[in-house]
Simulated scan of single mutants.
Amino acid sequence: MKKSIMALVLTGSFAATPVMADTIAGVYVGAQGWRSATDGGFADNNNTANFNLSDETQSSGYVAFEHPVPLVPNIKLNYTSLDTQGNTQLDAGFTFDGDLYTADSEVYTGIDLNSTDIILYYELFDNDLVSFDLGINGKYVDGVLNVREESTATRGATDFSGVIPMAYSRVQVGLPFTGLGAYAEGSYLSFDDHTFSDYQLALTYSFIESLAVDMTLQLGYRSVEMDIEDLDGVYADLSYDGAFAGLELHF
């Protein structure tokens, strides 16, 4: 029931580094809970509506594998949910799925959206204080949009999806022997009529550092913005932002 988007993203970032830089293969597994506020809307032309959308708790999870083999990139997979819904009294009309929704009508809106990042990257440098990664990100976006007018029961639904090649980068900073650090990670694309950005900033604290596993808490802010023009017949201008908390394990 779902299709696909494509985009190109450039990211800059800061993250807490372990006390010692990795010299052998390592696996990072993380999960985040993200309380996001959502603004914007969609339509089947560039006259997008502006909906009242509810704040939601989104989920995000990732796994990354790093190794010391030259020229072979490291890999990271990241999944994020971007679901929301709301009820709106329209201040202007718009069309969706072939139907006209007039000004002042009451409509229910549902957005079922998720993204999966497939990132291949290199560590350009990595030490106790700072590390910097650069690579390519293939973002797969998969979504379903729903609208229902309360008075007439007129309803429409459209699904879309796609894989988008993007640039990726990451910078990490930390205070050795304290477990404290900070990071920022982001992506940006502006290609043809599509614009897409995804970044996060956070403070981190590594409360367990051992030969078997490191455990790090994350507390930060994330923002996702997308301006889509005629993707599978979908026009959307949506932004998500809010605070998140997470936990990362490093094996």
Rank of each mutant, 00 (worst) to 15 (best):
T178P: 09
L82F: 10
L201H: 09
H250Y: 03
D237A: 10
I164D: 15
G40V: 06
T195Y: 12
S169Y: 13
F244G: 00
D159Y: 04
V72C: 08
Q200Y: 10
V27M: 12
L201S: 13
Y121V: 08
A7H: 12
D126M: 01
A167V: 08
Q200N: 12
G156M: 06
A202N: 05
G98Y: 06
F207E: 10
S190T: 05
A153G: 06
A243C: 02
A202R: 02
M6I: 02
S169G: 12
S4N: 09
L53Y: 03
G246P: 00
A243V: 08
E123H: 07
N114M: 11
K3M: 13
Q172M: 15
Q200C: 02
D159R: 06
Y235H: 05
T178D: 05
D232L: 13
E149Y: 00
S210C: 10
F14Y: 08
T80C: 09
Y235P: 00
F251N: 11
Y101H: 04
T152V: 04
M1G: 11
A157S: 15
T88V: 09
E106R: 08
E123D: 10
R222Q: 07
G156V: 04
D198K: 08
P70V: 04
V213F: 13
T158V: 03
S151R: 14
A7E: 14
V171G: 14
N45Q: 07
L77D: 00
N45W: 03
V163G: 01
V130N: 04
T38F: 09
D128M: 12
T154M: 09
T11A: 14
D198I: 01
I228R: 00
I208L: 14
E149S: 07
D133Y: 12
F160Y: 02
M6E: 10
D227T: 03
N52R: 13
F132G: 06
G135R: 04
T109S: 15
A184R: 03
P18N: 08
N146V: 03
T178C: 10
D83E: 12
D22C: 01
A167C: 10
I5A: 14
Y28M: 11
L249W: 03
G30R: 07
A16M: 11
Y122F: 09
Y199H: 06
D241H: 07
N87Y: 10
A245F: 04
A31Q: 02
P18E: 08
A16S: 13
G242T: 02
L120F: 15
V171Y: 04
V171S: 13
R35A: 14
A245C: 02
D192S: 07
D232R: 08
V147K: 01
G156S: 04
E209G: 00
D142W: 00
F65H: 07
Q200L: 11
F251C: 06
G156E: 03
S239D: 09
I208K: 03
M20T: 14
A64L: 01
L82T: 05
T154F: 06
G186K: 06
L247C: 04
D133Q: 14
L189T: 08
Q200V: 02
I24S: 15
T152Y: 11
Y199P: 00
K3C: 13
M215Y: 05
T152A: 11
D104A: 08
Y221G: 11
E56Y: 08
A25G: 13
G138A: 15
G246K: 00
Q218G: 02
D112S: 15
F94M: 09
L90G: 11
D193M: 02
N137K: 07
Y62T: 01
D22E: 06
E185T: 01
A31F: 00
S151G: 08
A184L: 11
A15G: 07
T11W: 09
